[in-house]
Design a protein around this nucleic acid. Structure first.
Length: 150
DNA sequence: GCCAACGTTGGC
DNA sequence: GCCAACGTTGGC
């Protein structure tokens, strides 16, 4: 059992959307490190901190969980998608994703608040220059965040 | 909209 | 394999 923080633009998919939709493919990741986390390390049932980014109040907005094993991101094959990748083929797909299921909405733990909390200082997402859309979360960090959200 | 910090691409 | 140029992320 691992833990993750996954960023989503709420104008695109918010925590409310994720809960309403249920298990949904986490499409559009086009960064190899983030892809590798999904492809190589995620397991069904892993805990996800659902983070709202590029919005008025960025921060953790809810809890989700990994809901599938990895499989190819369909949008890489779709010429009409903005995520289309001409170098990807069905025989040799480049982008792999998992389904993510929204579990519950929480109060917003804002980025500014997170930065003030010593128990969260080690989180990858808070490190200077970090812009990975998927980052690993330690069990300690997970516990600390859940406590703050309760 | 700005821009710092990264990541990717492609010529050599 | 280096690295300059370019593209992207995402907070502010």
């Amino acid at each position: 059992m691992k833990y993750w923080l996954m960023k989503s633009e709420p104008d695109d998919v918010s925590i409310d959307d994720a809960i309403r939709i249920g298990a949904a493919p986490w499409f559009g990741v086009r960064n190899y490190q983030a892809r590798n986390f999904m492809r190589d390390q995620m397991q069904v049932g892993d805990g996800v901190l659902f983070y709202h980014s590029s919005c008025a109040e960025p921060g953790i907005a809810g809890i989700a969980e990994v809901a599938s094993t990895p499989y190819p991101d369909e949008t890489q094959f779709d010429e009409k998608s903005k995520y289309f990748d001409p170098k990807a083929t069905r025989e040799n797909p480049r982008w792999i994703l998992v389904d993510v299921k929204g579990v519950r909405k929480t109060k917003l733990l804002s980025l500014t608040e997170m930065r003030t909390l010593p128990q969260l200082a080690s989180m990858v997402v808070l490190q200077k220059g970090s812009r990975l859309s998927i980052t690993p979360v330690t069990a300690e960090e997970w516990k600390a965040v859940l406590k703050l959200l309760s």
